[in-house]
Design a protein around this nucleic acid. Structure first.
Lengths: 210, 210
DNA sequence: ACCTGAACACCGTTCAAGT
DNA sequence: ACCTGAACACCGTTCAAGT
């Protein structure tokens, strides 16, 4: 359960000097490296500061607390994923329903698999933070472009587009997470690659008109 | 990231005396209460011991570490869910595919919603433990009874039953989690109630013969 | 102006001392 | 035999002292 309200999670104001933002980037990068090499259970502020080559005190000048370190890394990661989804939605605008479903599914899965050890570590990171505001923003952007995509289908229409978008996104995000989180085995990956497109297509075909 | 291997997570050997198991039950119950009232972020060993009316030292006689407290609570919770799924699978054995799909979907969702604040808290608990062994066992039991259920469908058959079972369970578990975790709003619950059965039915209809 | 790291508070865990 | 809680190690965070 998050203890710090999400408004307080962000990094401190960016300092004016160029040297400062280099230090900030070093701390950010060090957080990511420690996360991947040691895991979130062994990620301590001392270790991150050491890896970044600064003292803990300096680190606290740029990030108000440990959660802000993780928040920044999660934020950057989610941005990648959102951009991947947005690009896919633009690419398949106006296509037939089955094609756009497959395009969206593959783009999301690819984005997750491309960053693979990181994707897993970041599910754990998200669980330790109050991600309400961050997730709300991501969901808003993703739902907006998925809704536009579905709206543009050349061979289908929906009675309640908002509900279908919500359901599709929840299924997509949830199923991929469940498939990767507990065992990202070759069998699980193969299942996602083959069955996830079928699920999404089947759902959309069922709830669409024509 | 879990630091303690899952084999070491269990409670210590049950003591011989009756008084002991009462103490153990009190600690177990206290863990659950503190989890729900304070959240996992504020759940400390001191607080649990205090709530249970024992000293920390005594607590450590029954549970080797904090993770074992949480493990016990998670284990009990998952048992409830597994039993609910098993019962539903027995109840719908031999039914038509659409009926068994709806029966399974509703049973799983009901089991999650019945324990509602707890279900949410336990997603967070699971993220803090090495649940590999526990989850593997739950998955084995759930997949076994779902596979038997699908096998018995009176109006459908499957080419790769194992793969379909794996995919259906992943979709079911993942979609419900995603729907509940970030906002268990009335809108999210309504979406799960209406769309989850449609998703599962649509997927199963697509991958079945006849 | 910026950095350092010893010091502080808190939490998980242990173990010498009690009954 | 079982319980207690002060003591220890470790971690997040601060701030007086340095440059």
């Amino acid at each position: 359960m998050p203890v710090v309200p999400s408004e307080a999670l962000k990094a401190r104001k960016t300092p004016r000097q160029a040297r400062s933002s280099a230090t900030m980037a070093a701390i950010h990068e060090a957080t990511f490296q420690v996360l991947l090499s040691d895991g979130i259970g062994r990620l301590t502020t001392t270790r991150v500061a050491e890896r970044a080559g600064v003292s803990v005190g300096t680190m606290y000048q740029y990030f108000p607390h440990k959660q802000a370190l993780l928040y920044a890394v999660l934020d950057e990661y989610l941005e990648h994923v959102v951009v991947a989804v947005e690009e896919a939605c633009l690419r398949f605008e106006g296509a037939r329903l089955a094609e756009m479903s497959d395009g969206l599914t593959q783009a999301y899965l690819d984005a997750k698999l491309r960053h693979m050890p990181a994707s897993l570590a970041l599910y754990a990171v998200a669980a330790e933070l109050d991600t309400a505001a961050l997730v709300a923003d991501v969901v808003r952007r993703v739902d907006q472009c998925i809704e536009r995509l579905l709206q543009s289908a050349s061979d289908a229409a929906f009675d309640d587009l908002g509900k279908v978008t919500f359901a599709l996104r929840t299924m997509l995000v949830g199923t991929v997470r469940a498939g990767l989180e507990n065992d990202a085995s070759p069998a699980a990956l193969a299942m996602l690659r083959t069955q996830l497109p079928i699920m999404c297509r089947a759902y959309l075909a069922t709830v669409s008109r024509q």
